[in-house]
Design a protein around this nucleic acid. Structure first.
Length: 119
DNA sequence: ATAATGACTGAAT
DNA sequence: AATTCAGCCATTA
């Protein structure tokens, strides 16, 4: 039987399902009005090792600007919104969370015991 | 092919 | 309390 030496002449092979996809899938499940930590996402997405949370950060950074994934519900282990550079201090994210009814303390921290996603 | 880059976390200084 | 370090993936130039 002759079988193609190469899978197919796809000029632009579709991106293989990677870690980012798994991360996004988990983030999609966070209910409105709740938040989850990077670490939590890493666990659910089964990202092994201590770099899991970091990988989650990478995955979120790769999200398209027009995504419908509730990325705003992901915060760091201290209950604070992670800053992403000098041009975006997380203002937008806090805004979106406020619209969902998530309260942010005077110190900028969110009470995980109250708003944390249990799963 | 190599290199730079980017939303974290916990332990040790 | 603030800083430094290790851990290590996908994308893009």
């Amino acid at each position: 039987m002759k079988r193609p030496a190469r899978p197919a002449p796809e000029a632009a092979a579709p991106p293989a399902p990677n870690r980012n996809q798994r991360v996004w899938a988990v983030v999609r499940r966070i209910p409105r009005g709740r938040v989850a930590t990077y670490k939590q996402i890493a666990e659910h997405a089964v990202l092994p090792g201590p770099t899991g949370p970091r990988q989650v950060g990478y995955a979120l950074a790769a999200l398209p600007a027009d995504t419908r994934i509730p990325w705003q519900r992901v915060i760091n282990s201290q209950g604070r919104v992670s800053t992403r550079g000098p041009h975006d201090d997380g203002e937008r994210q806090r805004e979106l969370l406020a619209l969902e009814g998530v309260e942010i303390g005077l110190d900028g921290r969110i009470d995980l015991a109250r708003y944390g996603w249990r799963r």
